[in-house]
Amino acid sequence: MVAKTIAGKTVEVNEEGFMINPNEWTEEIAVEIAKEEGIPELTAEHWKIINFCRQSAGASGKAPTLRQITVGTGVSTKELFALFPKGPAKKVARIAGLGKPEGCV
């Protein structure tokens, strides 16, 4: 684990950059991580997915899979890839301050 300062707040992250404690997450941290992931601005559609993932993880203790995200939000896989290019489940989990989803490489 490594301490990293994101949006002025020091948080613990693992070797892949996923936050260790989801309770340290803030919307400001999400905006900064999104920029690191190549997403310059988070739209209402991005927030819909981020908030769903945080709620889902709060209930299950795990970041949701791609299928759980598409079913739970009504956003198609194609739309999800457009919003979070190159590995949307992994990317949205990182932005949402969650651990790496199961099954992601």
Rank of each mutant, 00 (worst) to 15 (best):
M1C: 10
M1A: 14
A3T: 11
A3N: 12
K4R: 15
T5P: 05
T5L: 03
I6Y: 09
A7H: 01
A7V: 08
G8E: 12
G8N: 09
T10S: 14
E12P: 00
E12Q: 14
V13M: 14
E16A: 14
E16K: 14
G17Q: 06
F18D: 14
F18I: 14
F18H: 15
N21G: 02
P22C: 08
P22I: 03
E24L: 01
E24T: 11
E24G: 04
W25F: 05
E27T: 01
E28Q: 12
I29Q: 04
E32R: 05
E32M: 03
E32D: 11
I33C: 11
I33L: 13
G38R: 02
G38Q: 03
I39N: 07
P40Y: 02
T43C: 06
E45R: 08
E45D: 14
H46W: 05
I49V: 15
I50M: 01
F52L: 03
C53Q: 00
R54C: 00
R54N: 00
R54I: 00
Q55G: 03
A57K: 02
A57I: 02
G58A: 07
S60A: 03
S60N: 11
S60T: 15
G61K: 03
G61H: 04
K62S: 09
A63I: 09
A63R: 05
P64H: 07
P64K: 08
T65Y: 05
T65F: 05
T65D: 02
L66T: 13
L66W: 04
Q68A: 15
Q68S: 10
Q68K: 07
T70I: 13
V71H: 04
V71D: 14
V71W: 03
G74W: 03
S76E: 06
T77L: 08
T77R: 13
K78M: 13
E79V: 02
E79M: 12
L80W: 03
L80C: 04
L80R: 02
F81C: 07
A82L: 04
L83Y: 09
F84Q: 08
P85M: 09
K86R: 15
G87M: 11
G87V: 08
A89C: 10
A89V: 10
A89R: 02
A89P: 05
K90Q: 14
A93I: 10
A93M: 09
A93C: 08
R94I: 03
R94E: 07
A96S: 15
G97L: 09
G97H: 06
L98P: 02
G99R: 14
K100G: 05
P101Y: 11
P101F: 12
E102C: 05
G103P: 12
G103H: 12
C104V: 15
C104K: 07
V105F: 13
V105H: 13
